[in-house]
Simulated scan of single mutants.
Amino acid sequence: MAARIAPASRPYPAYAQERLARLASPGGDPLVLFTTLATDQRLFERLFSGGLLDRGHLSLKQREIVIDRITARCRSEYEWGVHVSAFAEKAGLTRDQIASTCAGGPDDACWTEEERCLLRLCDRIDADCTLNDADWTDGLRFFTPHALLEILMLCGYYRTISSITNGLRLPLETWAARFAQFAATEAS
Rank of each mutant, 00 (worst) to 15 (best):
P106K: 12
A109M: 07
A14D: 14
P11V: 09
A21T: 14
Q17C: 09
G92W: 07
A3H: 12
F179A: 04
A177P: 00
D40W: 02
A16M: 02
G27P: 02
T71E: 02
Y78W: 12
L58Q: 08
A21I: 10
P145C: 06
H83G: 04
I70T: 09
A72H: 01
C102N: 09
L58I: 10
T36R: 10
D128G: 08
S9L: 14
R4P: 02
G104Q: 06
F48P: 05
H57G: 03
L60K: 03
R141N: 13
D133Q: 11
F44M: 05
D133N: 10
G105Q: 06
K90S: 15
I98G: 01
G105F: 00
D133S: 13
A86G: 11
T165G: 03
M1A: 15
L140A: 08
L93M: 08
F48I: 09
H146G: 07
I5K: 00
N166V: 08
I5T: 03
C74S: 15
D108M: 05
T160C: 11
F179H: 02
E18A: 15
G156P: 02
V66W: 03
A177R: 02
A184L: 13
C155A: 14
L154D: 06
V84A: 09
D135G: 06
I98F: 06
Q62P: 09
P7W: 01
A91P: 00
E77R: 03
L168V: 10
W136M: 02
R75K: 15
G27Q: 14
Y157M: 13
W111R: 03
W111Q: 03
D54K: 13
N132F: 06
S162E: 05
P145Q: 10
R120L: 14
S163V: 10
R22T: 15
P30A: 09
A21Y: 08
A16G: 07
R116L: 08
A3G: 10
V84S: 00
N166L: 08
C74I: 01
Q181G: 11
T130A: 14
G104A: 10
R95Y: 01
T174K: 13
A134R: 12
E173T: 13
G167W: 05
G28F: 04
G27A: 15
V84C: 04
H57N: 09
T144W: 00
F142N: 01
L52P: 04
L119W: 07
G50R: 04
L172C: 08
Y12E: 06
